[in-house]
Simulated assay, not measured.
Amino acid sequence: MEKERILAAFNAVMPVFAIFQDQRRQELMTELCCKGELTVNELTALVALSRPAVSHHLKLMLDAGVITVRQVGVERRYQPNMAPIIKQLKTLTAALEAN
């Protein structure tokens, strides 16, 4: 039972680990965590990536559920979605510490 719980916890958090294997996505998430809600243009000004590259990474992060987006007029404002990530990491940590 314990082995299955640990494996389930790893499986739940693997998409987060996979999305953040890329250093550019780590950088984008760091900017969002430190500065809060940002647009693609604001993020592009903060990192050494083109606007299309930032948009591509944001789409991947949005699909993975690690960020959310809010439409404000013509702007799309992105923000981190940390609660589910933290919950998954806590579950994994608890499962590992239980052994």
Rank of each mutant, 00 (worst) to 15 (best):
A45I: 01
S55T: 06
K59G: 06
F17N: 06
V40S: 10
R51M: 02
A12H: 10
Q71V: 12
V74R: 15
G73E: 03
Q88P: 01
R24T: 07
F10E: 05
N81K: 05
V13A: 14
K90M: 15
L43Q: 03
M61W: 03
S55R: 12
G36C: 13
V54Y: 00
A45L: 04
V69Y: 03
V69M: 08
I86M: 09
M29Q: 13
A8W: 08
A8C: 08
E2W: 13
N41L: 02
M61N: 03
S55A: 13
Q71N: 12
V54P: 02
P15E: 14
E37T: 15
C34V: 06
N11Q: 15
G65F: 08
P84H: 06
E27L: 05
R51H: 06
V40T: 11
A64P: 00
I85F: 06
I19Y: 07
F10T: 03
I19L: 12
Q71G: 08
A8Y: 07
K3C: 11
L60D: 09
L49N: 03
H56N: 11
L60H: 09
R24E: 11
E2H: 15
A95R: 02
E4Y: 12
E75M: 06
L7N: 15
A98Y: 00
Q79W: 10
L49K: 02
E97R: 01
E27M: 07
G73C: 00
G65Y: 09
P84G: 06
I67E: 01
N81Q: 08
A9D: 01
V69F: 04
V74N: 12
E42R: 03
T91N: 14
N81S: 11
L89A: 15
V66A: 04
N41A: 04
I19F: 07
F20A: 06
T39M: 01
Q26L: 14
A18D: 12
E4S: 14
R77Y: 03
F20Y: 13
V47M: 02
H56G: 07
T93Y: 07
S55D: 07
V72W: 08
G36N: 14
G65H: 11
E27G: 03
Q26T: 11
D63M: 11
Y78D: 03
L28H: 05
Q79M: 15
E2T: 11
L60K: 11
L38M: 10
H57T: 02
M1S: 12
K59H: 06
F17A: 12
M82G: 04
T93N: 09
L43E: 00
N81E: 10
E97A: 02
V74K: 15
F20E: 07
T44L: 00
V40W: 05
E42T: 02
E97K: 00
I67Y: 02
L92R: 00
V72P: 07
L96T: 00
I67A: 00
L60Q: 13
N11D: 14
Q23V: 15
F17S: 07
E37F: 13
V66C: 03
T68H: 10
A95L: 02
T91Y: 05
V69Q: 09
V69T: 09
R51D: 05
T68I: 10
A9E: 03
K90T: 14
L92H: 00
R77M: 05
T39P: 04
L46T: 07
M29F: 14
S50V: 02
D63S: 12
P15F: 12
N11I: 10
F17D: 06
H56Q: 10
L62T: 07
Q21W: 09
I19C: 10
T91W: 05
L46V: 04
